[in-house]
Every structure is written in structure tokens, then in C-alpha cells.
Write a protein that binds this DNA or RNA. Sequence first.
DNA 1: GCGATCTATATCGGTCCAATATAGATCAGC
DNA 2: GCTGATCTATATTGGACCGATATAGATCGC
Lengths: 176, 176
Amino acid sequence: MDVRAICLGILTRGPATGYEIKKLFDDDGYQHFIEASFGSIYPALNRLTVEGLVSVREEAQDKRPDRKVYSITQAGRSAFLASLMKPLPEDKHRSPFVFAMMFAHLMPQPRVVEMIDCYIAQSEAKLAQIEENKDKPQSDGERFVMGLGKAIFETMLNFVRNHRAEIKDHKPEAAE
Amino acid sequence: MDVRAICLGILTRGPATGYEIKKLFDDDGYQHFIEASFGSIYPALNRLTVEGLVSVREEAQDKRPDRKVYSITQAGRSAFLASLMKPLPEDKHRSPFVFAMMFAHLMPQPRVVEMIDCYIAQSEAKLAQIEENKDKPQSDGERFVMGLGKAIFETMLNFVRNHRAEIKDHKPEAAE
DNA sequence: GCGATCTATATCGGTCCAATATAGATCAGC
DNA sequence: GCTGATCTATATTGGACCGATATAGATCGC
């Protein structure tokens, strides 16, 4: 599941530029489960082109930088399918917040509450974004991703909210 | 939240070798939310030593490689605390499985079911590991991490199990 | 009209991971 | 008692990847 495979996957949905591939992650709900930066997308597309897994059509635009529209080739389709038949790498959930919570006892209490509130706000924003995209026409796969994202963020929100209440109850002198 | 900060955090709990820091992730439930490899831990500890944020005591062992036991210094403690006062990077949940599910329509149906079953088995194993460690003496922070991990994996398991049933109901010709 | 944001590509430094090397200890099973 | 597997322990290297930055004209909001 490296960036090259991710690009191939996106391109099975239709031709796109590097910029559009990146934007797909930012705008829709995918970035919660998979992402790639420009610094890896552009080199990946170049290499895929050399290997014949994608083809490029340069669209010279009037008063804009050229667009390089990439399309997946038959060889690319086969390669992507083959990668889906191999065992998948495991999920990785990296949470600086959770790590920080392990050291709550070292922090001033207001900072802990601030951290939790910030995390709650972020999770709410993510949930809102998923909710927003719910009306768009979606494939089965997209509905699965959005549904799972929603379920996970709701679970985390609940858990963290309860934790916040515990902290407040336990040390009422730090109440707002 | 780079590897250096992670090492400092672990060392606030007491002196440890690079090996032990890594093992903490593997054995206990932390690896679900934060991790680091040997390839980054050892260089990080070296740099922290040069910077005076940790100190080393080399224990020459009889018939074993030397142990380098690292302890956090006062300067290290301050640096770690300072890093906790800065805004935290956001969570990153990277799931090749979820990405692959977006392309279920391109795969042979048995492969989709296999993927889901594999994912369910992995999640069950992670849950079992958390359950196992429940009896160990734990700090507040550890209970928080384990509790959240348990809640998330249970949510995902539920969701994926339902999804599996849907696939089976929808295409009963692929039933086991 | 002016700053902010958007479209669009590209590169670079640095971080980090996965794999590999080394090497003796211990432990399980035969 | 021997043999292979696993464990303790450190270290390096190649490559993947990210975050920041550069460039540059377009468009949009105020």
C-alpha cells in the first residue's frame, strides 16, 4: 500500500492530475484512513509513467500552468489488481493525543482540559465533514468508508467526553 | 511528537535501554496508538545524549552485549514538558484495509470476504491483547489508552461484521 | 484594488521504517 | 545432549515518505 498503489487506485475511478488526487483526500472523507503528500504523489506518478502503468496527456492551458492528466493503463489496472490480491499491511493509528494523555499527571491540569477540548473540537469537525458529504452520490465503497469513519469518531468522542467529565469530577477545583 | 519526544516520555517512567523502549510498544497496548522502530530509537537516544536531555550508563554484561541504560535528565524533563505545552499534531489513522474496500467491486468476491475475515481476526487479536493486559497494575494514563483502544476496536469489529453480513446477504451465491 | 485563496507542478531536507547484520543466551523438543 | 528457535541487545543502511517551500497566474471577497 505505498503511494504508487494509492495513485493507481484513485485512477481506476477516472483520469486525474496529481493535484486532483491530493484534493480527493482533503475534500472528501478519505484522509481519515489514507493519505499521501505532493512530495510523494508527483514522483510516484512520474515513476508509474516510466513503468507504463499510467499514461499522461499534457493539457497546455491558456493562462495557467500545464495540467498533466494521468490515466491508468491496462498494465496499471492489472498491477493494481495484483496488489489487492497480496496480504494487506496492518492498520496504523498514530495518536499524539493518546500518548500525551499518558502523561497527564505531569501537566498542569488546565492544559490537560485544554488538550481534551481541542481534541473534542477536532473530532467534531471531522464528524461534521463526514455528515456534510453524506448527500453526495456515493459508491458502496465510499459509503463503507464514511460509515466506518463516523462510527469510529463517535466512539472516540464519547470516550473522551466521559474521560473529561471524570477529570472534572475528580478535581473539581479546576472547574471552569 | 517525533521519536525523540516519545523516548523522553517513556523515560519519565524510569531508566530503560533502547530495546526495552521498543518492547514496551510491542508487549503492552501502546503500539495501537504510538510506535517507533529501532532504526529511529537508537539514533534518537544518541542525539538526546549529545544534547544532554538523557544520560547513559553502560552496563558491561558478562556474556551479553553491553546494555546502555538511558535516564532522563532534568533538562530532558523540562524539554518533554515544554513539548506537551505546544499544540499536538493531529491523529493519523492509516488503513490499507479501508482503502482496499473502496475497490471491492474490482476484486473477486471470495477475496473480499477473505480480506474482511482477515481483518476481523486481526482486530480480535488486538482486543484479546488488551483484555490480557487488563489485570496488570496500571496508571490512569494506561487505563485511558487501553479503554479507548478497546472501544475503538469493538466499534470497528461491529461495523465490519455487519458489512460482511451485508455482502453475504446481497450475494448469497458466494456463501461459504 | 488588494490580500487571500485556488489551481498546478516540483524539489529538497530531514524523519522514519523495514530489513539486515552481529552475537551470545536460553529454552523447547527430540 | 544436541539442534533449532527465540530472546536480549545494539547498530546501520536504503529507501519511502512528509512538510515546507518555491513559483506563478487566476479568481474571489471585501
